[in-house]
């Protein structure tokens, strides 16, 4: 489990983590697609799931929240930053939960880059201690 850096001002606890399998998959996908980022999707078919895009493909806006970021490089000499974003209106309903990006066998995923590998990123959630993340 790899916890993200804290990216929300005033907070002290990580909000999002990569499972070991997700970390390995993101590293592998980076070698195919280059730098990557996540945006958490809302509802419908393939939705309510994290979408993984090449950096620069999906444009975040002032109405998105950066929930966390990782450096997924296994070599200390290089940097491989990956950010995790969500729309602020969705964050208003999700903010009390900690998210872990995991991987399951799967078929499809909008335009997320992992689908051809026969896998799908999936969010697992747990309640945060309500006082802590906002302290």
């Amino acid at each position: 489990m790899y916890e993200s850096q804290v990216t929300i001002e005033g907070e002290r606890h990580s909000r999002v983590a990569l499972s070991d399998e997700a970390l390995a998959l993101v590293r592998r996908l980076w070698t195919i697609h280059g730098p990557l980022m996540f945006h958490q999707s809302g509802g419908c078919c393939d939705g309510s799931s994290p979408m993984c895009f090449p950096v620069g493909d999906f444009h975040t806006s002032a109405h998105d929240v950066l929930l966390g970021a990782w450096d997924i490089a296994s070599d200390a000499d290089v940097s491989m930053p990956v950010e995790f974003w969500m729309s602020s209106e969705q964050f208003a309903y999700w903010s009390h939960t900690h998210l872990t990006v995991d991987v399951v066998a799967g078929r499809g995923s909008g335009f997320s880059v992992e689908a051809p590998e026969g896998v799908r990123f999936l969010i697992r959630s747990r309640l945060m201690d309500a006082a802590e993340p906002f302290a």
Binding site: G42, C44, C45, G47, F58, S87, G110
Partner: peptide
């Protein structure tokens, strides 16, 4: 037809 993030991407 699909979910919101891909919907935004398609609008972009």
């Amino acid at each position: 037809t699909g979910e919101t993030t891909t919907g935004r991407l398609i609008l972009q």
